[in-house]
Structures are given as C-alpha cells and as structure tokens.
C-alpha cells in the first residue's frame, strides 16, 4: 500500500502514512485535494468499495476529522483517508457522485456533527433526529449526561454513597 502512496505522493499532498495492519493503512490528505484523490483511488487504483464515511471531533484542536474508509475488493486492502477540516462552519465537498450511499452518510454527518456537504442530495433533511433544537449531538461539546438529566427525571428510591466518604463520616467525621 505504501507503494501506491509513494507513486501518488507527487500528485497529492499525502501525509501521516501509517500501515495499521496487514490490509489497512491510514493517510491524511488536504481538504482541497481529497475528493480528487479519492476519485483517483477509486477509478485508477481499484478502491471501488466505500465502507464508511464518518467524522471525529477534535474539539481541543478545533478540527473535525473526516474519515473515508475505502477498500479494494481485488487486493483486499483498505485505506482510511483522513481529512482535517475546520470546526467553524464545517464544510466538505460531497462525494455522492462517486457512491450512492455517500449521500446518506453525508446527511447523517450534517445532522450529527453539523458538517455541511453542499450539493449532496437531501443533506438538509433530518435523518435520525426529529425536531432537534440543540447543537448537533455528536459534537464533543454536546453533553449527553447533562441533556438527559435536564430532559428526564431520576428514579425514586435511589441514594448514592461513596465508600471512602461514607467511612469517613462513620469512623472519623472530625478529621
């Protein structure tokens, strides 16, 4: 797989190559070249199968990582193509023209992470959520626990004790 990257290195700014296991390698590509690069892998290098598109929120770096997992059914090898995009007004070029199911992934990413894919069919339609008014829930800054505490109520009849604190209370309250 290194061989493919070595060959394409001149044409595309590919970074962070890592052979994760026998048949999976990780690479990072610039946002602007990513769709071009993925198209090339699909059309010329036999990476015909798209397994997933997903995102990772690197809140502390103020970036989203988009991961495209593509697979070559002949050589059985896969790449995770990673693209770092800005978290503010997050936007990425759509690849729905390459794979039909990409539109669904992109629609989900829009809903769950708030990453826009202009031109992707139905990208603005709610996918899983209905009537959602909070920030996109898969962002790291959405606090699920807090949300559920505010939205639901706890069951009656439950009390909490922390062993160490309880022992202090019982055995040495004044120290």
């Amino acid at each position: 797989m290194k061989e493919i990257i070595d060959r394409l290195q001149e044409l595309y700014p590919i970074g962070d190559f890592k052979q994760q296991n026998k048949s999976l390698a990780l690479i990072t590509v610039d946002k602007d070249k990513a769709v071009d690069f993925i198209t090339r892998l699909k059309n010329e290098e036999g990476f015909l199968h798209l397994s997933i598109i997903t995102a990772v929120d690197w809140l502390e770096k103020n970036k989203f990582q988009l991961s495209y997992l593509i697979n070559n059914p002949t050589t059985k090898n896969s790449f995770v193509v990673r693209v770092m995009i800005d978290r503010e007004n997050a936007e990425m070029f759509s690849i729905h023209h390459l794979w039909e199911q990409a539109a669904t992934y992109q629609r989900e990413l829009k809903e769950m992470f708030g990453i826009d894919f202009p031109g992707s069919p139905g990208v603005d339609k709610p996918f899983i959520l209905e009537g959602w008014h909070e920030i996109p829930p898969y962002r790291r800054d959405f606090d699920t626990k807090n949300y559920s505490e505010e939205t639901y109520f706890p069951r009656e009849g439950r009390t909490k004790n922390v062993p160490a604190e309880y022992m202090k209370q019982k055995l040495y309250p004044d120290e």
Partner: peptide
Amino acid sequence: AGETYSKAECTRGEYGYYMV
C-alpha cells in the same frame, strides 16, 4: 492512541467497527 477498522462477515455483509 491510534485508529483502526475491524471487520467481520455478518449475515448481511461487512460489519465493522472504526475505533479512534
């Protein structure tokens, strides 16, 4: 730290976990 994708053949096809 790292990321990987682990897959298996389930009854419906490729089942996978992408873990970061």
